[in-house]
Amino acid sequence: MSALLQAEGLRLRFGAAPALDGVSVAIWPGEVVAVVGESGSGKSTLLRVLSGQIAPDAGTVHYAGQDVLALSEAGRRRLMRTEWGYVHQNARDGLRLGVSAGGNVGERLMAAGERRYGSIREVAARWMERVELDPARMDEPPRNFSGGMQQRLQIARCLVTEPRLVFMDEPTGGLDVSVQARLLDLIRKLAKEMGLAVFLVTHDIAAARLLAHRILVMRRGQVVEEGLADRVLDDPRHPYTQLLVSSVLAA
């Protein structure tokens, strides 16, 4: 078995500031990897580079044997529609607000090649149920839904094509704590059931502990520590990781 996605020597500067300073990462099939670090550490930039949305100044990204950085825009979009998923922090960035809830899910299925209207509607309804939304509301627009529900809808839209790799950028950011727990548990359950590889960017250490098999700690564009999730959190080595872990309030 080999890594599903592998990046090496990524460098990227925004003006004078290095956003990525020699980052190498790999993610294996079925593995949940969390990238933690504070704002500006480069973690969201890393996510965008790995998913081919921004080109780095240097370095390589390979997905299942393909050179992601050499893909045409059409090739990258095809990956995004089929084998990859991308969950935005803000559900409204990942949903089409002018389309019904069910349409948001079905649309992605159509983009991946499904043409039978009846089965699209059926699958969309099933997915709404899987993310704990009432399928009876599939014809309502997303704006009728709460923030947490919109986020679950975005996840349904993303997973309906059964991707192998899902990028998540602060999926619980901006949600109420009670809503966060439900969402995290849902992500955990779906990732396990579907054997998804998930690349999760979060500043929430508790979320990382709950979901991730492996944790990367980023600071100033560098991965300062990485390893087994519970070991990084319970036996942190790097001064910055120790600071991050000790800054979490125990409930």
Binding site: G227, L228, D230, R231, D234, D235, R237
Partner: peptide, 9 residues
């Protein structure tokens, strides 16, 4: 015990 469990490196 934690070293044997892998929780500590």
């Amino acid at each position: 015990l934690r070293c044997l469990q892998g929780n500590y490196g």
